[in-house]
Simulated assay, not measured.
Amino acid sequence: MSLHRWLMGMAALLALAACSGTRTPGPVHFFAEGMPERLSDWNVLYVDDGRLRLNAQVQPYDLDTALFTDYAHKLRTVWMPAGTSARYQPDEALDFPVGTIISKTFYYPRGEGDTVLRSDDAGPEADGGLTLGKVRLVETRLLVRREAGWIALPYVWNAEQDEARLMRTGELVPLTLAGTDGKHEQVEYMVPDENQCAGCHGTDLKSRQIFPIGPKARHLNHDFAYADGPANQLDHWQRIGYLGEVPQGELPRNAAWNDAQAPLEARARSYLDINCGHCHSQKGAARTSGMWLDANTHDPLRLGRCKLPIAAGQGTGNRAWDIMPGAPDDSILTYRIESTDPGVMMPELGRSIVHEEGVELIRQWIAAMSAQECGA
Results as ranks from 00 to 15, higher is better:
Tyr189Glu: 01
His219Arg: 12
Asp181Phe: 12
Thr180Asn: 10
Asn195His: 03
Asp204Lys: 01
Cys200Val: 06
Lys216Ala: 04
Ala198Val: 06
Pro192Gly: 09
Glu194Thr: 11
Pro215Phe: 06
Met190Leu: 08
Gly182Phe: 09
Glu188Tyr: 05
Cys200His: 00
Leu220Ala: 07
Gly214Arg: 09
Leu220Ser: 03
Leu205Val: 07
Ala217Glu: 10
Gln196Tyr: 04
Thr203Arg: 01
Asp204Ala: 01
Ile213Tyr: 05
Asn221Glu: 03
Glu185Lys: 05
Tyr226Met: 06
Thr203Glu: 00
Ala225Leu: 09
Asp193Ser: 05
Glu185Ser: 06
Leu220Trp: 13
Ile210Met: 15
Asp181Asn: 13
Leu220Phe: 07
Ala225Val: 10
Thr203Pro: 00
Pro192Leu: 07
Val187Asp: 00
Gln186Lys: 14
Lys183Gln: 14
His219Val: 02
Ala217Gln: 14
Ser207Cys: 03
Gly214Cys: 10
Glu188Ser: 10
Cys200Leu: 02
Tyr226Ile: 06
Met190Val: 14
Ala217Arg: 08
Cys197Asn: 02
Thr180Ala: 12
Tyr189Arg: 11
Asp181His: 03
Glu185Pro: 00
Cys200Ala: 09
Leu205Met: 09
Glu188Gln: 15
Glu188Asn: 15
Tyr226Cys: 11
Lys216Phe: 09
Val187Gly: 00
Ile210Tyr: 02
Gln186Pro: 00
Lys216Ile: 08
Gln209Ala: 08
Pro212Ile: 05
Val191Gln: 04
Gly182Glu: 08
Cys197Trp: 13
Leu220Thr: 06
His184Val: 08
Ile213Leu: 13
Ile213Lys: 13
Ala198Phe: 09
Tyr189Asn: 04
Glu194Cys: 03
Leu220Met: 15
Glu194Asn: 01
Glu194Leu: 13
Gln186Leu: 12
Pro192Phe: 12
Asn221Ile: 07
Gln196Lys: 11
Ile210Gln: 10
Pro212Arg: 08
Leu205Cys: 07
Thr203His: 00
Phe224Val: 04
Ala227Val: 12
His184Asn: 03
Lys216Glu: 07
Met190Phe: 02
Val191Met: 13
Ser207Met: 04
Pro215Ala: 13
Gln196Phe: 01
Asp204Phe: 06
Asp181Gly: 06
Asn221Trp: 06
Lys206Thr: 14
Asp193Gln: 00
Ala217Thr: 11
Asn195Cys: 02
His222Tyr: 09
Gly214Glu: 14
Gly214Thr: 10
Ile210Gly: 01
Lys183Ile: 10
Gln209Cys: 04
Ala217Pro: 00
Asp193Glu: 13
His184Leu: 15
Gln186Val: 05
Ala198Pro: 00
Ile210Asp: 01
Met190Gly: 03
Phe211Leu: 04
Glu185Arg: 12
Ile213Ser: 14
Cys197Val: 05
Met190Cys: 02
Ile213Met: 07
Ile213Val: 15
Ile210His: 00
Lys216Met: 13
Phe211Val: 11
Met190Asn: 02
Phe224Asp: 09
Glu188Leu: 13
Gly199Asp: 15
Val187Pro: 00
Gln196Met: 03
Asn221Phe: 04
Gly199Phe: 07
Cys200Tyr: 10
His219Met: 15
Gly202Ser: 11
Gly199Tyr: 12
Ala217Met: 07
